[in-house]
Write a protein that binds this DNA or RNA. Structure first.
Lengths: 231, 231
DNA sequence: CTAATAGTGTCTATCAGACAATATTTT
DNA sequence: AAAATATTGTCTGATAGACACTATTAG
């Protein structure tokens, strides 16, 4: 490594995650309580330094943080944006690469015991969580929500928040929750069929005395399918 | 600034730009020839270190690089993505925040004298420039092209590549160049009208003995308007 | 008048959205 | 059969795309 670049002039680099799941209260985000200064005691998005001896690349760093906080290893993961300025962290010029992760309801339930102690799910209310967050994390969370809400309109994104197996009615219900409006059942099924990201699985579901529903799973649990048109 | 974080463990942070304009040969990208190792002599996307004493934030760093290379100060500028790994730069673990800039044909012509000596416009062919580029810049350029081509379908993006004043026929022609297909004139004008990002200006354009065309300019030269549907 | 391009109008096949009908199960 | 939900079908108003027509200028 050459030394014409003095390390003292390098910005700080962190990876921060907006980790979402569905709770009974709707869409929720994982927050941690900061143990150390700055912003000790405040809530923040989970994150950490890029470990140049340990992380092969940025996505690996994001997966490491995710596993540390939730125990989950194979979520839907997407880079959102990068912010960097001299003022966002009192310790100096800092860069934050922000990732969005979506956890299936299964993963959340099964890995509850592996969740970091200082982490907690917090329901989304409007454009945030109704709490002030450390650093510029409130603004980062707002951006993440905008990205998610935008993609609901024309992608398979909500499928990543359900359990591995689900019915079309359940999927429609998640779309309706995230969109904040009702959808037509017939049109919804046509759209899902032509988008071609679901596959039927054996087994039925019956919660009451009614016709059982076909169950489906995502063809690819890690990738997003974009629709030709809005839902 | 506290010192519990050792600078030797920080990654390198650079900002790189994919700067596009329209040349007679179509969409072109600005490349520089590297003077120093690594990859000395190779072409690369213009870029540079984040200067923590000089740049207030990442976008300021991008604007600084842009001005140094082209003399242009007010382009359309958009953050594309961030890559970072231990292997992309032989000098060590490095992060590159990539921005896309679109230069109007006016700006390119007027600032030709201000352009950095080592910089040159290179026409796009397929997914790149038909040259091997330094670092992972070929891959970054490919991503930038994918983003641009995707946005042409449903945004005002091509308007940022024209001179400040242009006719609807010229605008349609740019859309057709970038999309690689012909568009219907009537439908195109309906879409532009409802997207509502143009305003008429005085002045005529007449290249031959024909009816003169109304000239237009962007209502906002720095922002993109997204359409409800594809063009 | 002719040539050339700007700009507007019309017609139709297609389709999204609303609504309704049918299917399959438990009690 | 009744109740409940799944799944599929039909009808209609809106519109994207193809095509054609009118407008305005120079020569």
């Amino acid at each position: 490594m050459t030394t014409h670049d003095n390390d003292a002039f390098k910005p700080i680099a962190t990876v921060d995650l907006a980790i979402f799941s569905l709770s009974p209260a709707g869409l929720s985000v994982l927050l941690v309580r900061r143990a150390n200064a700055p912003f000790a005691g405040d809530r923040a998005l989970p994150g950490g330094w890029v470990h140049i001896d340990e992380d092969a690349d940025l996505e690996a760093a994001a997966r490491r943080v995710l596993k540390e906080k939730t125990g989950v290893e194979t979520p839907y993961l997407e880079q959102l944006q990068t912010t960097g300025s001299r003022s966002r962290d009192p310790r100096g010029w800092s860069i934050s690469i922000v990732y969005i992760a979506l956890l299936s309801a299964d993963a959340v339930a099964k890995r509850q015991d592996l969740m970091a102690e200082e982490a907690e799910w917090r329901p989304i209310e409007g454009e945030g969580v109704g709490l002030s967050l450390a650093f510029d994390h409130a603004s980062l969370l707002k951006e993440a929500l905008a990205r998610i809400r935008g993609k609901v309109e024309y992608s398979s994104l909500p499928g990543h928040l359900l359990p591995v197996r689900f019915t079309l009615s359940e999927l429609q219900s998640v779309y309706e929750t995230l969109l904040g409006r009702k959808l037509d059942k017939s049109a919804f099924r046509k759209r899902m069929a032509e988008a071609d990201f679901l596959e039927p699985v054996e087994g039925e579901m019956r919660r009451a005395s009614n016709r059982p529903a076909q169950m489906f799973r995502l063809k690819d649990a890690q990738s997003l399918v974009l629709f030709d048109r809005r839902i």
